[in-house]
Computed example of a mutant assay.
Amino acid sequence: MLSAAPTTPAEYWDKYKPYRGKGVQPRPAAGAFDWAGIPGHGPGAERLGSPTTALDLGPAEGENAAFLARSGVEVTAVDFSAVQVDRARRLWDGEPRLTFVHAEACAYLDANGPRFDAIYSTWGAVWFTDPEQLFPRVAARLAPGGVFGFSHREPVVGQYGAQRMGGKWLEGREADLTVLRWQYGPEQWADILKRHGFTAVHAEVLPNPDPAALGTLLVTSQA
């Protein structure tokens, strides 16, 4: 059984965002591909091109992975939280073309396996993994011309690079655990991607419908 206060990043994600409703958690609708976490806001799966296969890094409940699978894409969704993988498998049990894997992103990419037409992460593993470690591995597992796309919260000006999570994200557990997220502005992400050999980089901030809230940074590129 997990301790009351997680002491590793994997344990933190095991406890993050539990279902707080009554009864069994219902299956999400998965009616659209969502980069921003705001239904009906921003672009959709068209930013990934027309993939036959896709890899989701950090799928959480798996709505985006399920949407692609229902669109005919063979999707592998990798998360290092055993709890979230188990939940996603239950939610999407019997969904064809969708496989959830319990693994850390870099370790999974290092393993021998197929190349993917698209690799993506929506507020997921790309946000929480050092790009100097992750991006070469992503490039090695993308098919020629494949699309690498990711999104995360728009960074506060000046808060770039590895930033410690705090406040409501850690729910009072800051003393027990440090969780880092890597965040940059559009030009910074473009420079990092190009340095790792990616081309056709498009990076933008999707404004939040609430003018008082931060938007979503969305980046796409090609192998």
Rank of each mutant, 00 (worst) to 15 (best):
Y108L: 08
D176P: 00
E104K: 04
G37M: 05
P59H: 03
P26S: 09
E174M: 07
Y12N: 02
L48W: 00
A77S: 14
E74H: 14
F100E: 02
A54I: 12
T178N: 05
T8E: 05
V83N: 05
R115T: 15
R97W: 03
L109I: 13
Y108C: 08
A125Q: 00
M1L: 14
A10S: 12
E63P: 01
D79G: 06
Y184S: 00
E63M: 05
D79N: 08
G44L: 02
E11F: 01
V179L: 09
V126N: 03
P43A: 12
V75G: 03
P51Q: 07
W123A: 10
A36H: 00
A5K: 03
M1N: 11
T220F: 02
F150G: 02
Q159R: 15
A30S: 11
P155G: 11
G94T: 05
S121W: 01
H196C: 05
R137G: 11
Y19I: 09
L218I: 15
R97G: 11
E63G: 02
A111M: 10
T99H: 14
K22D: 12
V75S: 08
F135P: 04
A143L: 12
A162C: 06
R90W: 07
E171N: 15
P59C: 13
A111Y: 10
A60F: 08
S71H: 04
E63R: 10
A5P: 01
D210Q: 07
T7N: 03
E61D: 12
T7P: 02
A162E: 05
L142N: 12
S3A: 11
A36K: 00
N64P: 12
D130H: 03
F135H: 07
G215F: 08
A118F: 01
G113P: 10
V157A: 15
A88K: 00
G146I: 14
G72I: 07
A60M: 09
G37T: 10
F198M: 09
V138L: 07
G21D: 04
E104Q: 09
A105G: 09
V78S: 05
L57V: 09
P136V: 09
Y184N: 02
R173G: 01
P114F: 11
P209E: 05
R20I: 10
G113R: 09
L217Q: 09
K17W: 08
E104L: 02
E11Q: 15
P39D: 12
G146D: 14
P114V: 15
G72M: 05
A60Q: 03
A10Y: 03
L177E: 00
R137N: 12
H202Y: 09
K168F: 14
L68N: 05
N208I: 06
A190L: 00
T8W: 02
K17R: 14
C106P: 06
A77E: 03
P114L: 12
G167W: 14
